[in-house]
Design a protein around this nucleic acid. Sequence first.
DNA 1: TATGAATGAGTTTTCATTCAT
DNA 2: AATGAATGAAAACTCATTCAT
Lengths: 236, 236, 236, 236
Amino acid sequence: MKKGSKAAEPDTNGIPSDTPRSDARRGDARRKYDPEQTKRNILEVATQEFSAMGLTGARVDAIAERTNTTKRMLYYYFGSKEGLYQAVLEKVYGDIRALEQDLHVSELDPVEGMRALVEFTFDYHDRQRDFVRLVTIENIHGAKYVEQVKTFKGRNVTVIHTIEDLLARGIAAGQFRSDIDPIDLHLLISSLCFHRVGNRHTFGTAFGRDPSHPRLRARHRAMIVDAVLRFVRKDD
Amino acid sequence: MKKGSKAAEPDTNGIPSDTPRSDARRGDARRKYDPEQTKRNILEVATQEFSAMGLTGARVDAIAERTNTTKRMLYYYFGSKEGLYQAVLEKVYGDIRALEQDLHVSELDPVEGMRALVEFTFDYHDRQRDFVRLVTIENIHGAKYVEQVKTFKGRNVTVIHTIEDLLARGIAAGQFRSDIDPIDLHLLISSLCFHRVGNRHTFGTAFGRDPSHPRLRARHRAMIVDAVLRFVRKDD
Amino acid sequence: MKKGSKAAEPDTNGIPSDTPRSDARRGDARRKYDPEQTKRNILEVATQEFSAMGLTGARVDAIAERTNTTKRMLYYYFGSKEGLYQAVLEKVYGDIRALEQDLHVSELDPVEGMRALVEFTFDYHDRQRDFVRLVTIENIHGAKYVEQVKTFKGRNVTVIHTIEDLLARGIAAGQFRSDIDPIDLHLLISSLCFHRVGNRHTFGTAFGRDPSHPRLRARHRAMIVDAVLRFVRKDD
Amino acid sequence: MKKGSKAAEPDTNGIPSDTPRSDARRGDARRKYDPEQTKRNILEVATQEFSAMGLTGARVDAIAERTNTTKRMLYYYFGSKEGLYQAVLEKVYGDIRALEQDLHVSELDPVEGMRALVEFTFDYHDRQRDFVRLVTIENIHGAKYVEQVKTFKGRNVTVIHTIEDLLARGIAAGQFRSDIDPIDLHLLISSLCFHRVGNRHTFGTAFGRDPSHPRLRARHRAMIVDAVLRFVRKDD
DNA sequence: TATGAATGAGTTTTCATTCAT
DNA sequence: AATGAATGAAAACTCATTCAT
């Protein structure tokens, strides 16, 4: 009944996952049972399925079928469909944090730092469609599952701190306006980066233009950076 | 099995629907056979249910129960769960167009017109959460249902025309930049108005701040208008 | 919702039905309501539908839709789905009787008479597929509906009398064997004429050869006549 | 809700199925998990139900109730009502082939071989009423389900080869006519054996004579063998 | 006589989850 | 640690029939 013995890799759009197989088995002989590997495999497949179908739309059978293991293991490790969904959310939020560490905007000039932050946010959303979709799905469910994800709240403070730092330095340098709330600015940036990915299907249908098309991608990136910089810039 | 005969009103947030009841029941006392009323009633309930639960999450039984009729009528008029969902999409997209007609931005000064357009867009999304949720849900499904809605594609051109007109007049008046694509601008405005509503749950969880709170609402409205105007404004 | 306002004529294979429209309205002014016409229309459509789908497979809605009238009338005139089915059986058995009157085998030489009878039986089954299917369907239901059809039993005696007469004259003339039971002979003839029509689909699928194909038709007709004559002929 | 654990045996009329129970349960006491047994049990019950009620008339619930398992297992193994129906067709057509193998007509004198073939065909149809009914039902459905049964087409060639062999040897021996098409002959034999079983209800109603009555049975058997032999025999 | 709307009981199918091995 | 079989509850959908006009 299984579609194949190898589960397709999730659509990470070229960004390597932080748990490569070769690395995970480092030092091991090829074991028959590898719980970590099994769990990871389930999580990968589940990420795709939940992302593609939503929490209610996803089918436990469908997930199990694309897995290297069976449905029973899914319950063995994650307890329930919802448990698996939460594990997926946890993993996905964990992935993004790893990337954010690489952003050292505090070392940049405020304007350049702001640009870097927006570009990073843009690129991340543009690439991590699964993430965008899962956030969307969570909102359909009133964010009630993400609330239980421990890593969730903490990671968001970081971004705000980054923005606060940028704004403060920009204000001090006479480059930025002083009346901007950092959380509002984060919302503004997020909006611009998120919407074009999350709602690209209805947008594409409505206007016959797919916002994720490579050509548009570059233009949107420039436009969003431009819009944000114009917004924060101090009027002369 | 029925919960009662009083169907809950949909969350239209004070904006009257374009098919007022008084008209539908013209002159009559509560008639037993009133197909239009029956269909409207089903659609209203279904809008809430689909909006709240998603296409897969919604339950036909649950919809029927909150209706004045039975499940059978739902199939009688809409053929299937998906057919009903599509009818809901059609209605919801129809509602926004009706309102757009009332915006006579072409009579306004470009800057004021732009402000009016953004404020309208902001207010609409802020109030019509069902609409925002349904669009989100459609995107989870890759917009495949809205694609089958005949009236959908033509419907959206209007906004673009409005924007084109505003841009042209603003450029002519030396107020606006001349390098802005109208569809991109629409996307930008939409992003700002949509995201804070659609993703308010995860946002609220992340930052302990509900973007739909009345106090934030006004600030966001001003911020978004400001951001858009700064974006389109011609540099001196 | 209706497919069209005109119901397609049943597949009578070129043999005119005994109740042509023009005839039915003879002498009438074009009346708004014509109960006989309505009934006939329903019966024609029902014949096709029951013949094509079986008693359980036929859908009252489907019949009504292809009718000039509505479902309600169907119940008005025929009481129930089963009532309509029985009316169809009655009509179909009535039709065949009308044709049998034209066979005057008693005036023919026994061998020629037998040939004529077999050819008539062959042609009738070959053309009246609806009849064959309905008989088949009745057998699925243990013939419990046809038992209530008044015209049914009577009409079958006629054939047996015809055969008895042929056999008697053939025996007297030294042409036919004297040990043949007329009802058994009728069964034999029926078998040969019925099976190739009733089971032509599985036969066609099994052997890649459609027994109703015109080329085969002539060959089968000759073969069956030949087989029957060889069977009844007296050995020298 | 279950009627009980004793599932009624299908009407195999004394001919053993090719998958005897004793073998399936080899050495074990009644096992709880025995997929083959479960599938076989469902198939047996389904054969009866479909045969008795037709595809549309059969009720999945009714089948499940007479089974040792639940309705769910029926879907687990056969996917759908139609899938189960197809599996029944496949089994039933498989059964007849198995028996055909035991007929070694090639070792017999042509006339005796032909007699043996006809008698086998007669006996098989006479006993396997379920088979006859299912074929009838398939024809109501235009053979569209049997067309999807992979094993079906190849299966039927065997009989034709047998007939070809008999005809060739009979012609060589100067016993048979040389102008007979083997498929036509198969159709002729089938007709005679099938019709009296498949249409015995209407026949019984029409002539007050049940063709499946033991006394008639023997007479029909002899008559059909006689008719076929007279048909193939070479004229002097 | 005629009609479109309405319906309750039933029918097929699906789904997350657990059991026996 | 792992598995294929099994399940009950619920979900979507259908159908012959009747009601109100």
